[in-house]
Nucleic acid binder design. Sequence first.
DNA 1: CCTTGACTTAGAGCGCGCTCGAACACCTAG
DNA 2: CTAGGTGTTCGAGCGCGCTCTAAGTCAAGG
Lengths: 138, 138
Amino acid sequence: MKIGELARRSGLTAYTIRYYEQIGLLPAPDKGTSGQRDYDASILVWIEFLGRLKATGMPIREMLRYAALRQTGPVTDAARRVLLEKHRDKVRGHIADLQANLLVLDAKIAGYADAEERTETNGQHQREPLRARHARTR
Amino acid sequence: MKIGELARRSGLTAYTIRYYEQIGLLPAPDKGTSGQRDYDASILVWIEFLGRLKATGMPIREMLRYAALRQTGPVTDAARRVLLEKHRDKVRGHIADLQANLLVLDAKIAGYADAEERTETNGQHQREPLRARHARTR
DNA sequence: CCTTGACTTAGAGCGCGCTCGAACACCTAG
DNA sequence: CTAGGTGTTCGAGCGCGCTCTAAGTCAAGG
């Protein structure tokens, strides 16, 4: 598989693939006489995993540490597990933060919605008392 | 309140506060004859809210749109609500993605844990499990 | 054969969100 | 009165993660 096809199949651009290779995140593939990169399909699995690390906010530096461990072989399994566990905990914390902030956001939105409802009520029923209606409609 | 104190109380640096003012995210406070910024404590509420938007991944450009609407007055309430609702939906989506990726991460970690357990189990039947295995597997 | 398009390299550039350096002004305590 | 801490402006610089340009090589179809 040449770089263009890998780009299509992985969702990365060819630029990014070369960049990842350059920094050591992707292994350097064989290059034939023409000097063109020839990829094995198995690289897709690794790229997908990198994508998940990235999607969960892992910085490239840390992915490099993981990639280096992987390169070294099965002796590093425990270290890799530890690395992933730490990352997982960070992700969990991040999700918790997001959820907390989401609550505040919801409250803020509810505030705006209330204000709008009051405005509409005023507009349509100027002579009617507000407080009773509002209490009921919420 | 001068900028240093606001920095301490808001968690931003004085640099960042000036930067936010420069781009329009914070209102320009009164500056006395000495030219020093004098903040009202109420700014802290706004900064905290900006922090939540930031923590949920809103880019500065969008915070600026919100800030501009706010500046304009209550006529923009509906627009602000819409903006926040869209953002909230993005955040929800993001959380869902994170949770999905977390499952994969957990599975991967479980895989490593299994492997280790197998190794340990093997090891229990040997005299010096780790060192011996290392020597061989390298 | 010739064209077209995918590939190669090294290195520059970009968008984001700050972060800091330089040079100078001001305020307050001792 | 003076030292030192805090403030001011403006513009440059940084860390991250790509993204692209330039100039050239190569492969395959018409």
